[in-house]
């Protein structure tokens, strides 16, 4: 699984090695790493619904690694922007982050990912306590949304691809709402049954 998650990077490196990144390699690398960040975010968000729907509890063990790979590709994406695209031109970067909504949104999503990656170890889960840890890691819903908006706002006109991500995200977040709603009605009806039981 770990190796599988590195395949996109390997393919990108292979293309670079063969000089197949097209006329604008920096744009290509930026696009590819951004696309894989979003894809890994979506895969990570798929773990919980699939695990519950198909009762595959062992899937949970993969979630951390998938999430960390999302962070890994986001870091590559961010580094590509800072280094290859802007070449550490700090003034231009600050201006971009402040002035360009799509960069503001993307940058925010990346910054939000950092604490999640930092608190991904077992020790950190213990230190925070499961409850607080879970609360913190719900930030991934916001990050996923910001990531999709980032893609949507950078596209010139053909928004089909960002819309696909938006749709996937909507389904994944919708699944969580559905689970919650089902649990609530189930506990409600259970307590109603308890109440209705003859004494």
């Amino acid at each position: 699984m770990f190796v599988a998650c590195l395949i996109p990077l390997a393919l990108l490196a292979l293309r670079a090695w063969r000089d197949q990144l097209g006329a604008n390699p920096i744009e290509y690398i930026t696009r590819a790493t951004g696309w894989w960040t979003l894809t890994f975010l979506m895969i990570t968000l798929t773990v919980t619904p699939v695990r519950r729907l198909l009762s595959m509890p062992w899937l949970l063990r993969l979630r951390r690694m998938l999430g960390l790979f999302a962070f890994f590709y986001a870091s590559l994406h961010f580094t590509t922007y800072i280094w290859l695209d802007q070449f550490f031109d700090l003034a231009a970067i600050v201006k971009d982050v402040v002035k360009r909504p799509f960069i503001t949104v993307g940058f925010t999503a990346f910054v939000l990912l950092i604490p999640l990656a930092a608190t991904s170890t077992n020790a950190m889960v213990k230190r925070l306590g499961a409850r607080r840890w879970q609360w913190l890691h719900r930030a991934v819903y916001v990050i996923g949304t910001l990531g999709v908006i980032h893609f949507l706002w950078l596209v010139k006109k053909d928004i089909r691809e960002p819309l696909v991500f938006a749709l996937v995200l909507a389904v994944l977040l919708g699944a969580r709402l559905a689970f919650r709603w089902r649990e609530r009605t189930r506990t409600a009806s259970a307590s109603a049954q308890v109440a209705a039981r003859p004494g």
Partner: peptide, 19 residues
């Protein structure tokens, strides 16, 4: 005059590394 979503101050000449 910037594009509302990105700067027009610089450009990447295809084949060159820096802007």
């Amino acid at each position: 005059v910037d594009h509302p979503r990105w700067s027009q101050a610089k450009e990447r000449r295809i084949g060159e590394f820096g802007k």
